[in-house]
Design a protein around this nucleic acid. Structure first.
Lengths: 222, 222
DNA sequence: TAGATTGTTAATCGATTAACAATC
DNA sequence: TAGATTGTTAATCGATTAACAATC
C-alpha cells in the first residue's frame, strides 16, 4: 500500500535531486540539513518529504547519496527517458528546443511543429520543424509522453485539444492562458510574465515596509 | 491598516488580471464564477481573494471590470512600469529579451549583459548586449527594479551578488540552482526542467492508477 | 559509550470550501 | 418583490515546524 505523496513534496523533489547531482562522486552521504539549505527549506520538512517517498536514512549518519538519487528518480517517474513534442517554433519555442537542461535530464524533444510556412522545413537543434498538420499521423507512428505548448495564447487551447486527442497525457503550457484538458491528462502552466508580476507585488510590499520603517525610525528621539 | 495578502492569493491575482484583459470593451461587470472558471479555482476562493485586496463587488451584480482591473494592477505594484536588466544572452536569455509578453505588461528590459566576446556588442530586440563589467556603472546611472538571470547555473550566484550589490531589489532566476540574496531583496525561481519533472510524477501516478483500474475492471465478471 | 542525526509526534499555521445571510 | 450574487463564517483540509525519543 503506497502512501500518497503530498503535492508540496512532489514540487520539492526535483530540487533535492538537483542538489544530489551537484555533489562530487566522493560524497557518500548527505544530511537532511544539507538538502534543506540547498533547497531553501527546513530540515524537518526534508526528512518528512523523504519519509513520504520511503527513503531509508541512517540515524547519526544521513542518507546514502546514490540510493536517494535513484529513489527520487524512480518516484518522479524518471527511471526511463520521456519523449516530448514541442508545438510553436517562435521565440520561446526555439529557445526551448535548444535548451540543454531538458535533454540532460532525460526529456528528449523528438519533434517540433509550427504552422508558419517560413519556419516549416527549417531545423532547430538538429530537429526539422514540421507542419502542425502532421501531428496526428506522427503521433500514431511514435507516441510521446509530453507536449510543450509555446504558441500564442489564442492557439493554445486548440493545440492542447489536438495533443490530448492524439493521446498525449502530459502538457506543459507556456502560452499565457489557462487551458482545459480531459481528466485523464495533466497540465502544468508556466507563465513568464506572471512570475514578474508576482515579483512586482513583493517589491512594492518591501518598498512600503521599508518606507514605514524609515518613518518609524525618524520618529524616534535622536 | 492594510491586511496582509496571503501568498496564494498574490499568485492568483495575475490570472484574474489576464482574464479581465481578455474581455472585450463592451463587458461592464464580471462575476466571481467567471473569474473562477477562467483561472481554474473555486468561486468562493475568488471572492475571498478579492475581499483581501479590498475589491467592492455589488451583490446580485458582480464586480466592475475596469475598477477591478485597476485595483489588481495597483495591488500588484504595476501602476507604473518597471525596468528590468537581463544577464545572459544565450539561448534562453535571447528569447526572454525578445519576449513580447514582458513589454506588453509593463516590464521594460533596458539592458542585456553577457561575458562572451562573441555576443557582446551585438543587438537583441534593439538592445545592445553589453559586457557584464559595465553592470555596476550602468546601474549607478539608471537604477533598475528587477534583474533576470539567464546564465549557466555556475554563474548564477555571482551574478545575483552583483545585482543585489548594485541595489536591485528583485531577481527572477532561470538558472537551475537556488540562489541566496540579502533579506531586503526578493528572488523568484523558474526552473524549466523542474516543471517537466513534476509533470513526469503525475504522469507516472496517473499511469499506475489507470493500470490498477484496468486490472480491477478485468476482475469483474463479464 | 558519546555524539550525531533520523523519524515521527503533536501543535500550529495557512489555505480551501460549502453554505448562507445580506443586500443589490 | 423575486432573482442573483456578494461577503463572510465556520468547518475542514493540508502543510509546516519544533521538539525529542529512537538509534546508528
Amino acid at each position: 500500500m503506497t502512501r500518497r505523496i503530498p503535492r508540496a513534496t512532489v514540487a520539492r523533489l526535483p530540487a533535492y535531486l538537483r542538489y544530489l547531482d551537484s555533489l562530487g562522486p566522493g560524497r557518500q552521504t548527505v544530511q537532511s540539513s544539507d538538502l534543506a539549505s540547498a533547497s531553501g527549506v527546513n530540515a524537518a520538512k526534508v526528512r518528512k518529504d523523504l519519509s513520504y517517498i520511503g527513503a531509508a536514512g541512517v540515524r547519526g549518519v544521513g542518507y546514502d547519496v546514490e540510493e536517494l538519487r535513484a529513489l527520487i528518480l524512480r518516484k518522479l517517474g524518471l527511471s526511463t527517458d520521456l519523449t516530448v513534442v514541442l508545438v510553436g517554433a517562435g521565440n520561446l519555442g526555439s529557445a526551448l528546443a535548444r535548451y540543454k537542461g531538458f535533454d540532460n535530464r532525460g526529456f528528449h524533444i523528438v519533434s517540433v511543429y509550427d504552422i508558419d510556412p517560413k519556419r516549416v522545413g527549417k531545423r532547430i537543434a538538429g530537429i526539422e520543424i514540421r507542419h502542425l498538420d502532421h501531428l496526428e499521423e506522427d503521433l500514431r507512428q511514435t507516441a510521446a509522453d509530453i507536449g510543450i505548448i509555446a504558441t500564442p495564447a489564442s492557439e493554445a487551447q486548440g493545440v492542447a485539444d489536438r495533443l490530448t486527442g492524439a493521446g498525449i497525457p502530459g502538457i506543459l503550457n507556456f502560452a499565457p492562458t489557462v487551458i482545459n484538458v480531459p481528466a485523464w491528462a495533466t497540465v502544468r502552466q508556466v507563465d513568464l510574465a506572471t512570475e514578474l508580476q508576482i515579483l512586482a507585488f513583493y517589491l512594492r510590499t518591501r518598498r512600503e515596509a521599508g518606507a514605514t520603517q524609515a518613518r518609524t525610525q525618524k520618529r524616534r528621539p535622536g
